[in-house]
Design a protein around this nucleic acid. Structure first.
Length: 279
DNA sequence: CCAGACGTTGTT
DNA sequence: GTCTGG
DNA sequence: CCAGACGTTGTT
DNA sequence: GTCTGG
């Protein structure tokens, strides 16, 4: 799934990726870049508009439905993801599917691998450089919070993990690989099930890269710039994990492969992990 | 009909 | 273990 | 999603 | 708003 992300794109990167000039970026001032974004944070999204033209707008992550009563405490954690497989059937999402689709612009996202009792965070991104942009399919809504004014929020669609990422987690966000895919997601109003399931197909491109990061970022209060920095050292968690002589070589080999350059690396890593005997 | 809920994930 | 808060 | 709390009594 | 349960 997708419960934490990085949003540190510069305004220039955002407007370039959105294809919308800065002057037409609604609530651009609400965007506070963060290496450790959780539901409730504001990030840039490209949305459908009534005119059929894409619009750039800052919105909060974590869908707060329009039917929420004014004054109610919004729960951004309740609906920060939407299963793409059931989004057309669930009432809360169904009504957003024709004219409230959006593209979430981020640098990347975080996922935790279970290593025994501990959880090791990884950073996943499109591996093209420091200026990486990743686009995710989302749905947005507008909640009229009485005198507080309207609040725009979004949810990120999820799907089964692709082969390359299955070792890490069984769910992943719906990734729109390029600008064209993003445009298709935003184009028109109606969206048939076939089109939806095609777009929600697990992204398995080898430009999707990952690496271990510091467990310090697991705490969402931690906002250091090193949240997404590659962690080369073995984690403290695995230091305590017993590694038998035979499995050790495999484990060490796997450690070098966790930078996620090939699908093979991921699979070997997961197998090495499972093969480790508990002594 | 009205009342009341509306989600995802991971876990065993 | 399980629930709440963020 | 992860982090952090999880209870009662009596006292000021 | 829209679906489910009664």
């Amino acid at each position: 799934m997708c419960g934490r992300s990085r949003a540190t794109l510069s305004p220039q990167q955002v407007t370039a990726a959105a294809g919308v000039p800065l002057e037409r970026w609604r609530n651009s001032e609400q965007y506070q870049p963060s290496y450790n974004v959780s539901p409730g944070f504001s990030t840039p999204v490209v949305r459908q508009s009534s005119a059929g033209k894409p619009e750039l707008q800052t919105m909060k992550w974590g869908l707060v439905p329009s039917y929420t009563k004014a004054g109610e405490k919004p729960d951004f954690f309740r609906m920060f993801n939407a299963r793409s497989e059931s989004v057309a059937e669930k009432g809360v999402f169904k009504r957003l599917l024709s004219r409230h689709r959006c593209v979430v612009l981020l640098n990347g996202f975080y996922e935790w691998a279970k290593e025994g009792k501990h959880k090791q965070p990884y950073y996943i991104h499109m591996g093209t450089g420091e200026g990486d942009v990743i686009r995710m399919a989302g749905l947005f809504d507008c909640w009229d919070n009485g005198p507080e004014g309207p609040m725009y929020t979004y949810t990120i669609l999820t799907t089964d993990s692709s082969k390359r990422l299955q070792w890490l987690h069984d769910r992943m966000p719906v990734i729109l690989p390029d600008e064209a895919a993003a445009e298709q997601w935003l184009a028109g109003e109606a969206l048939d099930h076939k089109e939806l399931s095609r777009i929600a197909e697990p992204y398995n491109g080898d430009d999707l890269r990952w690496h271990k990061v510091s467990p310090a970022m697991s705490n969402m209060r931690y906002q250091g710039a090193d949240c997404a920095k590659e962690l080369k050292r073995e984690s403290v968690a695995s230091f305590f994990k017993p590694v038998a002589g035979k499995a050790k070589a495999t484990a060490e080999a796997a450690v070098q492969e966790t930078s996620g350059r090939s699908s093979q690396a991921g699979r070997e890593y997961s197998q090495a992990g499972k093969a480790q005997p508990i002594t």
